[in-house]
Amino acid sequence: MAASDDRPRRFPRSLYSVGSEPDPRYSLANERTFLAWISTGLGLLAAGVALDVLGNPIDAGLRHAAAVVLVSAGLLAPVQAWVGWWWAERAMRLRRPLPAPLFALPLGLAVAAAAVLVLIGLQP
């Protein structure tokens, strides 16, 4: 049995087959960032659902639009989690600079847009 066969198989293989192992502390920090993005996505989904189903004094059309924006952002956050984790792990393995988050700006703009819709829709 070859030495490479002794290594445990890890997913995704395309990532773990390049470069060298980074300091485990950095990989664990990258994992925590992944989990923070997942948590953010869950929060956005919950906020969108709550906004749409609770009896808020907000114009129904604008409330629904804000909820759709929040739920859409909640769907995008896990994509950011995976892509960001993968790119950061690859950069660390190849000793390259860490990349910027891909979807941070669109997610921030979505939250701001939902807030504007809620503010406009507030009924006096």
Rank of each mutant, 00 (worst) to 15 (best):
D23H: 09
V69T: 10
V118R: 04
A115V: 12
L45T: 06
L75E: 00
G74Y: 01
P12G: 03
P24F: 00
R7S: 12
P57K: 07
L35F: 11
P12Y: 04
L42N: 12
G74R: 01
S4H: 14
S72G: 14
F11H: 15
G19Y: 01
I120V: 15
A47F: 06
A114W: 01
A67W: 01
L54A: 15
G19V: 09
P106K: 11
W37A: 00
W85H: 06
A100S: 15
E89C: 05
A88G: 10
A29L: 13
S17Q: 13
V79Y: 04
L62H: 02
G121M: 05
V71D: 03
L70W: 00
Y16N: 13
V71I: 15
P101Y: 08
W85I: 09
A115N: 05
P57Q: 09
A50Y: 14
R25G: 13
A91S: 11
E21W: 12
W86S: 14
L70N: 02
G43Q: 01
P99W: 01
A29G: 12
V18D: 08
R7F: 09
M92D: 03
Q123Y: 03
A91M: 00
S4I: 14
M1S: 13
V71M: 12
G74T: 00
T40G: 12
V68A: 14
A91L: 02
R7C: 10
V18N: 02
T40K: 07
D52P: 06
G108D: 04
P99V: 00
G55N: 15
G61T: 10
Q123F: 07
V53I: 13
P124T: 06
L75C: 08
A81M: 02
G41E: 05
L94K: 07
P57A: 12
V69K: 07
A65H: 05
R63C: 10
A50W: 11
W85L: 09
G74A: 04
L119I: 05
N30T: 11
R9T: 15
S14R: 14
L70G: 00
A115Q: 11
G74P: 06
R9W: 08
S4V: 15
R93F: 05
S72H: 01
L75H: 02
V49G: 11
A46R: 02
A110K: 03
R9V: 15
S20E: 14
P57G: 11
A2M: 10
A88K: 15
L76G: 04
A50F: 12
R95T: 12
N30W: 00
W37K: 04
A91R: 04
A77W: 03
A81N: 01
L70P: 03
A36R: 12
A81Y: 00
L119M: 08
D6V: 08
G19N: 08
S20P: 07
A47D: 06
A50L: 15
A112D: 09
A60N: 03
A2G: 09
L62M: 11
G41C: 07
V53S: 12
A114D: 00
V69S: 14
A77M: 10
V116K: 04
R63M: 12
A50T: 15
R63I: 04
G84A: 04
S20V: 09
D23K: 05
L45D: 05
L44R: 01
R10N: 09
G19A: 10
Y16T: 14
L122Y: 10
S4L: 12
G48I: 01
L119C: 08
V68S: 08
V49S: 13
A110M: 06
